[in-house]
Computed example of a mutant assay.
Amino acid sequence: MFDHTGIVVSDLARARAFYDAIGKPLGLVTADNGEQAFIFGKSKAEPIPYLWVGTLRPSYWADGSRTGVNQMHVAFVAPSKDAVDAFHAAGIAAGGTDHGAPGPREGAEGYYGAFLLDPDGNNIEAAFRDNLPYLHAS
């Protein structure tokens, strides 16, 4: 679990279309956060954790950093294997690249996940863990 994290993208509209598409099967939504950013998370009622996505250069970036140089990895909790499958299909349809088809992963009991590269090359994952039911409680 995380409070928040953020990534810088090169094309906000393209990124928004991708995150809108993968959010639907995971129960996540995007919300405006100014003209150059949006927030990706659960809802106004449950604002944390969230992913900040924008075109601004963060003040914390080290010299030499730029979009796509330091690939980010973010894994989102999926409520089911079907949601992982839908996440992967929606991401591909919205301009993402397959980086690991949906399925179990060796060495991770009860884990079912899928990996996509977003339009800027960030590694975005959806993970369902059937051995951790508290992750799926309403």
Rank of each mutant, 00 (worst) to 15 (best):
M1P: 15
F2L: 14
D3R: 07
T5S: 15
T5P: 13
I7D: 08
S10H: 04
L12G: 10
R14E: 07
R16H: 09
A17K: 14
F18N: 10
A21N: 09
A21Y: 12
A21C: 07
G23W: 08
G27K: 04
L28P: 03
V29F: 03
N33G: 02
G34F: 03
A37W: 05
G41L: 05
K42I: 14
K44R: 04
A45C: 04
A45Q: 11
I48Y: 11
L51K: 01
W52N: 03
W52C: 09
V53N: 01
L56T: 13
L56P: 05
L56Q: 11
R57Q: 12
Y60L: 12
D63R: 07
T67H: 00
N70F: 03
M72T: 09
D82A: 15
V84R: 08
F87H: 06
H88A: 06
H88Y: 14
A90M: 11
I92T: 05
A94Q: 13
G95W: 12
G103S: 00
P104T: 11
G107Y: 01
A108I: 09
E109C: 06
E109N: 05
G110T: 11
Y112K: 02
A114E: 00
L117K: 10
D118S: 07
P119Q: 10
D120P: 14
G121F: 05
G121I: 10
I124L: 12
E125W: 08
A127L: 15
D130T: 02
N131Y: 12
P133R: 06
P133K: 07
P133G: 07
Y134F: 15
Y134W: 12
L135C: 00
H136P: 11
H136Y: 12
A137Q: 14
